[in-house]
Amino acid sequence: MENKKLDGITLYTLEQKMIDKKFPENLIEELLVEFNKIINERGERGFQKCLVNLNYQVPEPYKSELNAEKMYGYYRKWIENEVVKLENETKLSWEEQTEDIEDLNIKARKTQLVLRHRISNVVLELLD
């Protein structure tokens, strides 16, 4: 990945894109805190590479079933709306889209589905 393209991935640009995509305000703040932790651990370039390499995977803190389920409790309405949008976009049921994580409970599966798609889409748009 070109360094020039990676330079477009900053906390500010991520925040702006998530606002544009109508992520819940508190979720944006929560994600930015987690992203900032990655920056502190890996540096700016490490953070950028981490996001570019997500490739429709869930960021680390949300891989936990318990964390994902808690997040569902906070953002249920948004997550359910996004699940419907993803089903329409992909023409696949949410169950089909989460077969790789079918061992998780429904709330965690839906949360992880939405997070991995929406965050990856934000990153891909920033790379264009």
Results as ranks from 00 to 15, higher is better:
E41V: 07
N55C: 13
E125R: 13
L14Y: 00
C50A: 13
E102F: 08
P61D: 10
R116N: 13
L32F: 04
T13L: 01
K70T: 03
R45N: 11
Q97K: 09
K110R: 15
T13K: 08
E30R: 06
E89L: 14
F47Q: 04
M1T: 09
E69Q: 10
C50Q: 12
E87M: 08
L11N: 00
E102P: 03
K5M: 12
L32T: 03
R116E: 11
R116M: 11
K22P: 02
M71P: 02
S64A: 11
L14M: 07
E25I: 07
E25L: 10
E82T: 06
K77T: 10
Y62Q: 06
K17T: 14
E102L: 09
P61S: 09
T90R: 10
M1G: 15
I9W: 02
E89W: 08
F35I: 01
S93V: 01
E60L: 13
V123F: 12
K91I: 05
L66T: 07
D128T: 11
E99C: 10
L126M: 13
A108Q: 00
L51D: 02
N36I: 00
E25G: 05
L92I: 04
V123M: 10
T13F: 01
T90H: 14
N105D: 05
Q112D: 07
E25Y: 09
E82G: 07
F47T: 03
F23W: 06
L54M: 15
T90V: 06
M71V: 03
Y74L: 04
Y56D: 10
L11V: 00
I19M: 14
V33R: 12
D128A: 14
I19Y: 13
R45F: 13
G73M: 08
E34M: 04
L51E: 02
N81L: 09
K110T: 06
Q57C: 12
E29C: 07
